[in-house]
């Protein structure tokens, strides 16, 4: 196994091709759950779980179910089916194992279903022709990238609560501006080759 390649996938997914800052996927939960660091960590964990699992399962389904029968055109609908079921499963699991996290995530948990980052990573895995391990690692690293972005913005927004923001920029407006500045900072990583 080529550990160097895996390492480059991880760094690439977290920093260079960050799902939020470089690919602009999953902006809805990014703005919605980034008010508190605590809940953003929870959301990040839920997304990590779903994304890693979804990457692995979608790879298997694509390789052994869709590709042999030339059914690649069913990719989107099949993947959405898998992701939706996985999210349902994660919701049940979290409700049982950590009710406080379940409450903190609230409506955003079922929203992972429509989180385009999950579907996006799954499709990108297929496009980049990764093998099974690379796919799983890429799914995991992509989710970590998502979590990093979420926590960074949440930390910023927690500080912003105390800042003297001009009245018309308060709330979601200043959050979008902060997110834009963060994305620009992440542009510093673009073009790096490992």
């Amino acid at each position: 196994m080529d550990l160097g390649r895996l390492f480059s996938i991880i760094i690439g997914s977290i920093l260079i091709n960050n799902v939020i800052f470089a690919r602009f996927l999953g902006i809805c939960p990014f703005m919605g759950v980034s008010k508190k660091v605590e809940s953003s960590i929870g959301m990040g964990m839920a997304v990590t779980f779903v994304m890693t699992l979804a990457s692995a399962v979608t790879f298997i389904v694509h390789r052994f179910l869709l590709a042999p029968y030339n059914l690649e055109y069913l990719q989107t609908i099949a993947f959405i089916l898998i992701i939706a079921s996985l999210v349902q499963f994660v919701e049940m699991a979290i409700e049982k194992l950590s009710p406080s996290l379940y409450k903190a995530l609230g409506v955003f948990l079922p929203l992972i279903t429509t989180n385009c980052a999950v579907l996006g990573i799954a499709i990108l895995n297929i496009q980049d022709e990764y093998n099974f391990i690379e796919t799983t690692v890429n799914g995991f690293a992509g989710a970590i990238g998502f979590t990093v972005a979420l926590i960074l913005l949440a930390g910023t927004r927690e500080r912003l609560e105390y800042a003297n923001v001009p009245k018309s920029f308060r709330g979601i407006a200043i959050a979008f501006i902060s997110a834009g500045i963060l994305a620009m900072a992440f542009m510093g990583f673009s073009g790096i080759k490992i």
Binding site: L65, Y69, L71, A78, I82, S85, Q88, F89
Partner: peptide, 21 residues
């Protein structure tokens, strides 16, 4: 074939969810 594949996929996920529930 596509109908069978998608149907099987849905069925598997449904059974899995029912078990998890």
């Amino acid at each position: 074939i596509p109908i069978i594949v998608l149907g099987l996929l849905g069925l598997t996920m449904g059974v899995f969810l029912a078990y998890a529930a």
